[in-house]
């Protein structure tokens, strides 16, 4: 499944990732914990090909993240991300947010994409929000839309960057349920968080990053 081997990354003089290696099984939930600035976000940005590691390899189902030094498209299809800011497209309604990628990439017809999107929204209990714009949604609803947008492309691994920052206990519990639901569909989930109790709530394997190194 996901395999990260000897990953290094520096910004100028500062080494942000220092020999990171780990593996993740299919359908497994894993938490990446660590203080701010420890290198958690840089690590998943490298895994998602948003940043380029200085050295080391990353693969999912034996497909390498890079091909001749450039992002590998076949690999890119296997990763999805729900970023901290969620980054929904504010000018598109929920349905268009979700269907833009599969339709513009000709992976599905518009009808197929809308049918799949509606099924996803229904399963996430926001089926009635398809025509709403992101600005009209609550924080939790926005997060579900971001999940649906990533899931419609059937990724093998889904990354969450700080999904519970600024959430109360009840909302945090809902996010945990959501993540367990995603994992039960066979999607591996990696969560960046500084919230230890959230990791305990999920009963997930934890990797602690300190100064760019795995500390546990």
């Amino acid at each position: 499944m996901l395999k990260v081997t000897n990953l290094y990354k520096s910004f100028g003089e500062q080494t942000v990732l220092n020999d990171i290696s780990f593996e993740l099984a299919s359908g497994e939930i894993m938490c990446l914990r660590g203080k701010s600035g420890a290198g958690k976000t840089t690590l998943i940005r490298c895994i998602c090909n948003l940043d380029k590691a200085d050295s080391g390899t990353i693969s999912i189902n034996d497909i390498e993240s890079l091909e001749n030094g450039k992002p590998n498209k076949a690999y890119q299809n296997t990763v999805g991300m729900v970023s901290q800011g969620l980054d929904l497209f504010p000018n598109l309604n929920v349905m268009d947010n979700i269907t833009l990628a599969p339709v513009s990439r000709k992976l599905m017809t518009k009808e197929e994409a809308e049918k799949n999107a509606q099924a996803l929204l229904d399963s996430l209990e926001i089926g009635d929000k398809a025509k709403s714009y992101p600005s009209r949604l609550s924080g939790g609803e926005k997060q579900r839309v971001a999940v649906a947008r990533a899931c419609i492309l059937s990724p093998s691994v889904l990354f969450f960057d700080e999904p519970t920052s600024a959430l109360d206990i009840k909302a945090t519990r809902e996010v945990a349920n959501l993540i367990e639901d995603i994992a039960s569909r066979g999607i591996s989930v990696v969560i960046i968080t500084h919230d230890e109790s959230f990791c305990d709530m999920l009963g997930a394997r934890q990797i602690v990053i300190e100064s760019g190194k795995i500390a546990n």
């Binding site: 299809n77 497209f89 990439r105 990533a150």
Partner: peptide, 14 residues
């Protein structure tokens, strides 16, 4: 926000 470009990149949108 550059997150908009990155979200597009993550979704493989040209």
């Amino acid at each position: 926000d550059k997150g908009q470009w990155e979200a597009g990149q993550m979704l493989g949108i040209s």
